[in-house]
Design a binder for these strands. Structure first.
Length: 312
RNA sequence: CGCGGGGUAGAGCAGUUGGCAGCUCGCCAGGCCCAUAACCUGGAGGUCGUCGGUUCGAAUCCGACCCCCGCAA
């Protein structure tokens, strides 16, 4: 069959993984890639290219980096694409553009819609203690993640799942599910299913502030926060005016409630912290300007800090 | 030139009025013990990131460079 013409829009690694899958399949012809403009980022504020741009450059694709995607509506129309595939693009795509692709504008979304519409969809299911999440391939409409569903695949959330590990799993699953879905849709084998709006909920973009630990909360909540926020922004707290990231805790909480919430103490030769309900054993942490260390290493080098109250 | 923290023993850290380099853990040997990750005794292990400067003398003061990390994006 004739290759399906695709314009791809996306920005981070997650999107690059999905794009990679399209490039490998000869049934698809990626005509152009739309990604966020290069921005100063990182230490020293060097200008960085998005993961999608790097990949597109490697294979010599046409790259568009509009401030607003509406600025390139004419170029998009000219290519007469069959599909517009959007994955973590970070810009709202206006309806005028959604109408261009012949077979439809497609979104690869990292949750089982209608659950978790919006941005921070990776972290939310871990925070809530869900047993699974997944990938949804859908047709886009003018709403935010409200379009009809084409295909879904569930992914189990492991007990030790982190935001980072789940991010990778979702990217892989999205990449694998996309190709067959596009082909099936092109051949008229899929009937789009409208979402049940009564079951929908929205989550917002994860901010640094979302990782701040409230030690008066139950240990189990904080344990999930640590996993969900890893590795960015990380679950963090204060120690004597300096930030500390808690990068890993023991999933088994200690049924101890004898200290003030936030107080560090030694339990069984391990670093532990009292929470609002129960306590947590800290496995790994990172202090400002320092590398990541284990709880045991913290005890060795910061013995005098044991007994401090965190979060102040 | 965005802001800031850091590179000292295998690991984590302390150590600036410049003067024989320390702590906790680990490691090795021996001891105690029914036994031990517990305890006791002894021991090995460091060109103090690199290069250069000041000095009788530099981990410490000055200059350049390399590497790591946080913020911010």
């Amino acid at each position: 069959m004739k290759p399906l013409k695709i314009i791809f829009a996306g920005t981070p690694d997650y999107a690059a993984t999905v794009l990679q899958a399209l490039l490998r399949d000869t049934d698809f012809l990626v005509q152009a890639v739309i990604t966020q403009p290069d921005m100063p980022a990182g230490r020293g504020l060097e200008v960085r290219e998005s993961a999608v741009k790097k990949l597109a450059k490697q294979v010599g694709l046409t790259i568009w980096q509009p401030q607003k995607v509406s600025q390139i509506i004419d170029q998009i129309r000219e290519l007469e694409p069959d599909f517009l595939v959007v994955a973590a693009f970070a810009q709202l795509v206006p309806e005028s553009i959604l109408k261009i692709p012949a077979l439809g504008p497609i979104n690869v979304h990292g949750s089982l819609l209608p659950r978790y519409r919006g941005a921070g969809v990776i972290q939310a299911p871990i925070l809530n203690g869900d047993s699974q999440t997944g990938i949804t391939i859908m047709l886009m409409d003018k709403g935010l993640d409200t379009g009809p569903i084409l295909a879904q695949q569930a992914i189990a959330i492991a007990p030790d799942e982190t935001g980072e590990s789940l991010y990778d799993k979702l990217a892989d699953a999205g990449a694998r599910l996309l190709s067959p879905t596009l082909k099936a849709l092109a051949q008229g084998q899929i009937k789009p299913q409208a979402q049940d709006n009564t079951k929908a909920n929205y989550v917002g973009l994860v901010k640094k502030e979302d990782g701040l630990i409230d030690w008066t909360k139950p240990a189990s909540d904080i344990e999930r926060l640590v996993r969900a926020m890893y590795s960015w922004p990380g679950a963090w707290t204060w120690l004597k005016g300096k930030q500390i990231k808690i990068t890993a805790v023991d999933p088994i909480v200690l049924p101890l409630n004898v200290h003030q919430p936030g107080k560090t103490f030694i339990y069984n030769n391990q670093l532990a912290i009292q929470c609002g309900t129960d306590a947590l054993v800290i496995q790994r942490l990172k202090m400002e300007g320092k590398g990541e260390i284990s709880g045991k290493e913290f005890i060795n080098g910061h013995r005098q800090q044991i007994g401090q109250i965190l979060g102040q």
